[in-house]
């Protein structure tokens, strides 16, 4: 099963749409609710990162009977130092984004915590690709 969702940079009101859709499907597959929770949290954080930090993005989801693979790729500023960005509390979020309740620098660490495999590839001034795998 393959699914795709577009992400619009800057549009916080739409964020969460993809993760909600995926959640519905995982429930239909009878995936354990704790596992669903992890996936949805990771996906939402990754989605919000595109909304908050990049221009536009695409979520590609591939569901198999034993795992889900999510690739979130965006066009945007990219991340210069991924290891630094992964640290709790590190954030470059603008004042505007912070005022909306985001930008605590907890997104990437949270994704790490909630996925079984995580790889981040990024090119400055081009974009970022986050790939995450969760086993059911």
């Amino acid at each position: 099963m393959n699914l795709e969702f577009q992400i619009e940079g800057g549009n916080f009101s739409r964020a969460g749409h993809a993760s909600s859709e995926i959640k519905k499907m995982l429930k239909q597959l009878g995936v354990d609710s704790r596992c669903i929770k992890n996936i949805v949290i990771a996906m939402y954080e990754a989605e919000v990162n595109v909304v908050a930090h990049a221009f536009e993005g695409l979520i590609q989801v591939h569901i198999e009977s034993d795992k889900i693979t999510t690739v979130i790729s965006d066009k945007g500023p990219g991340i210069a130092d991924v290891d630094l960005a992964m640290q709790e509390g590190y954030s470059t979020a603008s004042k505007k984004v912070r005022e909306m309740g985001f930008g605590a620098g907890m997104g990437l660490p949270n994704i790490k915590k909630n996925t079984d495999e995580l790889t981040i590839e990024s090119t400055v001034n081009k974009g970022t690709t986050v790939k995450m795998v969760n086993h059911f």
């Binding site: 429930k27 597959l29 009878g30 009977s65």
Partner: peptide
Amino acid sequence: TPKPAFSLDKDRVRALEKMNRAQ
């Protein structure tokens, strides 16, 4: 206790097949 009522099939492989077909 939870009583999930939205799964397509008890068997995950079959559920996925069904979901593909529904799609």
